[in-house]
Amino acid sequence: TFELKGKVGKVVKIAEDHYLVEVEGDKWIAYSDEKLSLGDRVMVVDVDGLKLKAKRIP
């Protein structure tokens, strides 16, 4: 999973306390310091076990 750092994905679902992000065809649980919206493009900035930390990108 460490190779996911720096990869770009898309928010495909918003849950109460996390997001579901699709990166290279796989879906991952993600969290972010900022509020994300459905369809936002994100970059993986860190990997915490099986969770990704994501940041919105333009």
Rank of each mutant, 00 (worst) to 15 (best):
L50Y: 15
V47Y: 07
Y31K: 08
S32D: 02
M43I: 13
G25L: 06
V21P: 00
G39N: 13
D46T: 03
K13P: 00
A54D: 01
T1Q: 15
V23E: 01
K51P: 02
D48R: 04
G25T: 07
P58D: 13
R56L: 12
W28Y: 14
G49P: 04
K27Q: 12
D40I: 04
L52C: 03
I29F: 14
H18G: 13
G49W: 03
R41P: 14
D46N: 03
Y31P: 01
V42E: 00
G9K: 00
D26Q: 14
K10R: 13
V23C: 05
G9I: 06
S32P: 02
V21Q: 00
K35G: 10
Y31A: 09
R56Y: 08
V23L: 13
V8L: 09
D33E: 10
E16C: 11
G49N: 07
K13F: 10
V47C: 08
L36H: 02
A15K: 13
A30R: 00
V21S: 00
G39L: 10
H18W: 10
K27G: 08
E34I: 04
K35D: 12
K7P: 02
D33F: 06
R41L: 14
K55W: 03
K53L: 06
D33I: 08
K35M: 12
E16I: 11
I29N: 10
G6R: 01
L38W: 07
E22Y: 06
V44L: 04
D17L: 09
S37N: 11
M43G: 04
L36C: 09
K35E: 12
A54E: 00
R56T: 05
I29A: 10
K7C: 08
G49T: 03
V45P: 01
I29P: 11
S32E: 01
Y19K: 01
K5L: 15
K10Y: 11
E22I: 11
W28H: 07
K55Y: 03
G6W: 03
V44G: 01
V12T: 09
V23D: 02
G6N: 04
E22M: 09
L4R: 02
Y31V: 13
E34S: 07
L38A: 09
S37W: 13
E3H: 05
V45G: 03
L4M: 11
V8G: 05
Y31G: 08
K10G: 08
H18F: 11
E24V: 08
K10E: 14
L36M: 08
A30Y: 01
E22G: 03
V44I: 15
K35W: 10
K27I: 09
D40R: 01
V11W: 00
L20C: 10
V8C: 12
K51T: 13
V11K: 00
K51N: 09
G49H: 06
K7D: 04
I29V: 12
R41C: 15
V11A: 02
E22N: 08
V8K: 08
V44T: 02
D33N: 07
E34P: 02
L50N: 13
H18C: 10
Y31W: 14
K53W: 10
L4V: 13
V21G: 00
S37V: 13
M43P: 00
D46E: 11
V8Q: 11
E16T: 09
E34L: 04
K7H: 05
I57D: 07
K35N: 12
I29S: 12
V23I: 15
D17P: 10
F2L: 15
V8P: 05
G49A: 05
G9M: 05
D46L: 04
D48T: 10
D48Q: 11
K55E: 14
V47K: 05
L36W: 10
A15H: 14
V11S: 00
G39H: 13
S32K: 04
K27A: 09
A30W: 01
M43N: 04
V47T: 07
V12H: 05
K55D: 09
Y31C: 14
V47N: 05
V12N: 04
K10M: 12
R56V: 06
K5G: 09
V8I: 13
P58R: 05
D48P: 02
L20A: 05
W28V: 02
E34Y: 05
I29C: 08
I29G: 07
G6E: 04
L38P: 10
V12S: 06
G9V: 05
V42P: 00
H18E: 12
L4F: 03
T1K: 15
E24H: 06
V42K: 00
R41N: 14
S32G: 05
V11T: 05
P58S: 11
V21K: 00
L20V: 10
A54Q: 00
T1A: 15
L4W: 03
D40L: 04
V42N: 00
D26C: 14
D40G: 04
K51I: 13
K27F: 09
H18M: 12
L38I: 11
V45E: 08
K53A: 03
Y19S: 03
P58T: 11
V11N: 00
A15W: 14
K7F: 03
K51C: 10
G6Q: 02
G49K: 05
L50T: 09
L20I: 12
E22H: 07
P58E: 13
W28D: 01
G9E: 00
L4Q: 09
A30S: 11
D40S: 05
E16A: 13
D48E: 12
D33S: 07
R56C: 04
G39T: 07
G6L: 02
R41V: 13
I57A: 06
G49F: 04
G9R: 00
I57C: 15
S37G: 12
I14H: 07
S32V: 08
V12D: 04
H18T: 09
T1R: 15
K7W: 03
Y31I: 13
I14P: 01
V47D: 04
D40Y: 03
V23P: 00
F2A: 15
E22F: 10
A15T: 14
K27L: 09
K10V: 12
H18A: 09
D46I: 02
E16D: 13
I57P: 03
E34R: 03
E16G: 14
D33H: 07
I29Y: 14
L38N: 07
T1E: 15
L4C: 09
D48G: 03
A15N: 13
I29W: 10
G39Y: 11
K53G: 03
L52R: 01
